[in-house]
Design a protein around this nucleic acid. Structure first.
Lengths: 180, 180
DNA sequence: CCATTTCATTATCAAAAGATAATAAATCAC
DNA sequence: GTGATTTATTATCTTTTGATAATGAAATGG
């Protein structure tokens, strides 16, 4: 799909910079422009909204995943979401202006941009339709099936807002399920 | 952003085909591959899920808008959504394989693909966050503000599922609002 | 044009979820 | 290690929403 010669590959790998960060490190704050996107080599990060001081989790991203406030990164406007590590992490940092330079030098990388936008869309599409079509209980069951590492590595009250319910309600859902 | 010479412009405009369709015309069915996307010249179409026989509206698209089952169109897999006109419509039809041919001939059009994926993402992002952050009542108020043509041209029971509530519940929301 | 169907509202009842508080368990900081 | 904080569960109460049915209004289709 994206076949690169040596020169292109060098240019591509050079736009990523390694960075080590502690846990609870805010990589992008709400209101600020997401000038970077992060490939997670080791560790774990989350994306969340702030609503009246309350944190509402939109996504959790693990090893080999890619995280950023996509809308802000793509449009370079103020982010409505926060990107924050949950564990000590090792990141490959992609800077937007570097990516733009690369795309200018090698138009072929427009395909990379396309793939990034598409992936962000597909991810969101799956999530949005589960909110539209399924109950919170079904969403929880699907999550356990499809993303078991969330259950293992994320505290329950954070999972609650990810599923769109209160921590109390999630606890009730779990009880309901276990008693069946 | 996408500057074209005469040849490119000709090639681009040639991939669109005009089509007139009656109302309630199914342009893409669930389970079928969306081989086309539609620019709406005149008329109105909607995108909806089928859940146990029930239609759950995901979007309404008016004149000068672009509609397709994006995931299916982009990946050429089975669509989980239906595309259907609500009024007699005039469409500019874009066939996927034509677009692929164009992109192959003029790699520049990768930017078009990128923009399409981005737009689909931004639209969905706005909608998904309203489901996560706002109440159905707030969603209704926002809709009245930002997309008043929905209220004017779409029957209320279809708006209900678009907002994620039952028709009865939407009727209650409207009563609550009017009595304030 | 009229019969039939669809649509929006309202009432009633049941189920689910939020708010709040109490408690016990787990985790964290020093 | 221990005191303080955070977290998960449970109980109680309230609010919201859904399910269902009834009604009148509007739209539809021969």
């Amino acid at each position: 799909m994206l076949e690169l010669n040596q020169k292109e590959w060098d240019a591509f790998s050079n736009i990523f910079v390694f960075r080590s960060v502690p846990k609870k490190c805010r990589l992008t704050d709400a209101g600020e422009i997401a000038r970077e996107a992060y490939f997670i080599n080791k560790g774990l990060a989350r994306l969340y909204f702030l609503k009246e001081g309350e944190e509402i989790n939109a996504n959790f991203v693990f090893e080999n995943g890619f995280i950023t406030s996509f809308e802000s990164f793509l449009l370079q406007n103020q982010s409505r979401q926060v990107v924050e590590t949950l564990e000590e992490s090792e990141l490959l940092v992609l800077r937007k202006h570097k990516l733009d330079e690369l795309t200018k030098a090698f138009p072929k990388f427009n395909i990379f941009n396309k793939i990034m936008a598409e992936q962000a869309f597909f991810m969101l599409q799956r999530r949005a339709s589960s909110f539209i079509l399924d109950s919170a209980e079904q969403r929880y069951l699907d999550m356990v099936q499809q993303r078991p590492n969330i259950l293992e590595r994320i505290p329950q009250h954070m999972i609650a807002s990810y599923l769109g319910v209160t921590p109390v309600s999630l606890s009730r859902i779990r009880k309901r399920i276990s008693g069946e």
